[in-house]
């Protein structure tokens, strides 16, 4: 049992960090929650009130539901693709013993050195009409590819942003699983696929869940990629929120949108956690 002095010592270490979190995260959220209950006025900007009208507006209009549906679809699709591409990559990296492991890991990390907006501009050059992809396709196949301002462009762009997070998380998870376990399974006659599915996969599942949730959250909150690669006609929640804040100066409604987006993401990640069998949860 922990002694009283130990508890005090632990508290004194945790105290400063807790205070910082309270100050820079919780306090603005409380303020934002208060704003979301105010009324918007084009002249006054915001009139103090306690109304649920901003939330009611979102839930009563099909337009906003559709934007939320698009956001969830993109986030889910990107997460699934990240898993599909990231799992084998992370597994191979984890089991690699050659001197190439570190350079390869660096290659995965390197994109994170560049901001996602700059990377998206790179995609814009690739996807643009008469851009690299369009010109190559026209030269090789005699057909033009117009990917700019399409949902495909948004999914590819978001995938490129999220994939390093998925690979790095999964690689750490696989690194934490003892190599000898799969060797023991092989020794007992299990083929590699069976050894992976029966031994490695259940052990990796909590970590895979965390990586998927991380990727899903990033997808739900994507802003620069949908704006730059999707164009004004492709609507997701974060750009919509910014439109209300920036174009309309409607702080109360954009605050409500922020809470709805946050609430939906939390709800879906909690639901996702229930999909993982209880005994495998982190």
């Amino acid at each position: 049992m922990m002694k009283r002095s130990d508890t005090l010592a632990a508290s004194s270490f945790l105290g400063p960090a807790t205070c910082v979190v309270m100050l820079v995260l919780i306090a603005p959220l409380v303020l934002l929650a208060r704003y979301s209950l105010n009324r918007f006025d084009p002249t006054e900007l915001m009139i103090e009130a306690t109304t649920g009208a901003n939330y009611a507006r979102f839930f009563s209009e099909a337009f906003y539901w559709e934007v939320m549906r698009t956001t969830i679809q993109v986030a889910l699709l990107v997460t699934a693709l990240c898993l599909l591409l990231g799992l084998p990559l992370a597994w191979r990296l984890s089991r690699m013993t050659s001197r190439w492991k570190s350079p390869l890991l660096l290659l995965i990390i390197l994109p994170l050195f560049v901001s996602s907006t700059v990377r998206t501009v790179g995609w814009m050059i690739l996807f643009a009409k008469s851009g690299v992809m369009d010109t190559t396709a026209a030269t090789l196949f005699g057909r033009h590819i117009d990917l700019m301002f399409t949902p495909t462009a948004v999914v590819i762009g978001t995938l490129s942003v999220n994939l390093p997070f998925m690979v790095l998380t999964l690689q750490t998870v696989f690194d934490g699983i003892d190599h000898r376990l799969s060797e023991a399974a092989s020794g007992l006659g299990a083929p590699p696929a069976r050894a992976f599915l029966r031994i490695i996969w259940p052990l990796a599942l909590p970590g895979v869940g965390i990586a998927a949730i991380l990727c899903f959250i990033l997808g739900m909150n994507a802003y620069a990629t949908p704006v730059l690669l999707g164009g004004p006609r492709f609507q997701m929640m974060a750009p919509l929120l910014f439109w209300e804040f920036n174009t309309n100066s409607n702080w109360p409604f954009s605050a409500a949108l922020a809470f709805i987006l946050m609430g939906t993401t939390l709800l879906l990640t909690t639901l996702a956690n229930t999909v993982i069998p209880r005994r495998y949860r982190a």
């Binding site: 918007f40 084009p42 337009f63 004004p232 006609r233 609507q235 919509l240 439109w243 174009t247 309309n248």
Partner: peptide, 15 residues
């Protein structure tokens, strides 16, 4: 402006 911005978003952008 607020009404036109809302109309633009829902009618012109959203097609």
């Amino acid at each position: 402006l607020p009404e036109i911005a809302d109309w633009w978003k829902k009618t012109i952008q959203h097609t």
